[in-house]
């Protein structure tokens, strides 16, 4: 996919990353943390134009939770409050072992999609999210068994090699769907040329989603719209609406993306259109 898809008017799939697990209400009090808050945020994001919601679960203290029970509560709350939005569970979990990381895949029903981190990245000064190939393969196999579409999270260009490796080791259903991620530390440096370069290095036929952290969310997702990609916005990735002004909600960030897409004459995909595009 690429610029031709933009010219052809291919609908853009907007993913709303509602809560995450790295930061919480200490960073922006509008971040939803409880199942009810996440459900309400999902409904508002869907109403604003999101076709996919990317979900994490938390403890009552706002801390990260990975248990099937906690994810079940979140996914139930989202299903109760939304119409048709696609549910995507995170399997990310810096420091957590495979036995913990696979639990978000075991809700009933299973999520339609789940994230799959493609390799290592550093956190803080002394912590690494290792994501070794064996763990990636095990998580992928469980997704495959449960009919869950993987969203391949590419945190840097080296992870594009890991995508190629996964495609050699496993028979992924088409289309391959990869999120290109830009930010600090061990992530791809957030610059337009690096987005174009990453797109060039995607496997043939792969679809891509564009994710920029912090102040890079707005410019890089806007660029993603123009080069035919899909986009992810939300408070997990960026707590500000503009410099010095906290975002009021996930829906506010989704609504801005919808306005940009409409100005650029890029249709916004409904959940049904997104299912068709992603082969769900």
């Amino acid at each position: 996919m690429g610029y031709d898809d933009y010219l052809a008017g291919e609908p853009v799939i907007i993913t709303a990353a509602l809560t995450g697990g790295v930061h919480g209400k200490e960073a922006n009090p509008a971040i939803p943390e409880t199942p009810a808050e996440i459900g309400e945020a999902a409904a508002a994001a869907e109403a604003a134009g999101a076709a996919v919601v990317h979900l994490h679960a938390r403890r009552d203290t706002g801390e990260r939770a990975f248990s099937t029970e906690r994810f079940q509560a979140v996914t139930d709350a989202v299903r109760e409050r939304t119409d048709d939005v696609i549910i995507q569970h995170s399997t990310g979990g810096t420091g957590a072992p495979l036995s913990v990381r696979r639990q978000p895949l075991q809700t009933d029903p299973a999520p339609e999609m789940a994230s799959l981190d493609m390799g290592p990245l550093n956190r803080y000064d002394h912590l690494t999210s290792e994501n070794p190939r064996g763990m990636v393969d095990e998580l992928y196999d469980e997704m495959s068994e449960r009919g869950i579409k993987p969203e391949l999270e590419v945190f840097n260009d080296g992870h594009l090699n890991e995508v190629a490796g996964l495609l050699e080791r496993r028979d992924l259903e088409e289309p391959v769907y990869a999120t290109l991620i830009f930010g600090g530390g061990t992530l791809s440096p957030p610059h337009p040329r690096n987005l174009l370069n990453a797109i060039e290095n995607l496997p043939e036929g792969a679809l891509f989603n564009t994710l920029g952290f912090g102040p890079h969310q707005l410019p890089l997702t806007t660029m993603g719209l123009l080069v035919g990609g899909h986009v992810r916005v939300g408070l997990e990735d960026n707590v500000y609406y503009r410099r010095g002004e906290l975002a009021e909600s996930n829906a506010q960030l989704v609504a801005r993306t919808v306005r940009l897409a409409e100005e650029l004459e890029r249709p916004v995909a409904t959940p049904a259109q997104a299912r068709s595009t992603l082969g769900l």
């Binding site: 790295v22 706002g62 990260r64 420091g95 072992p97």
Partner: peptide
């Protein structure tokens, strides 16, 4: 931060 709290509490080794 929630992720850092897992270090503070000694979760996941």
């Amino acid at each position: 931060q929630p992720m850092r709290a897992d270090i503070c509490t000694g979760r996941y080794a």
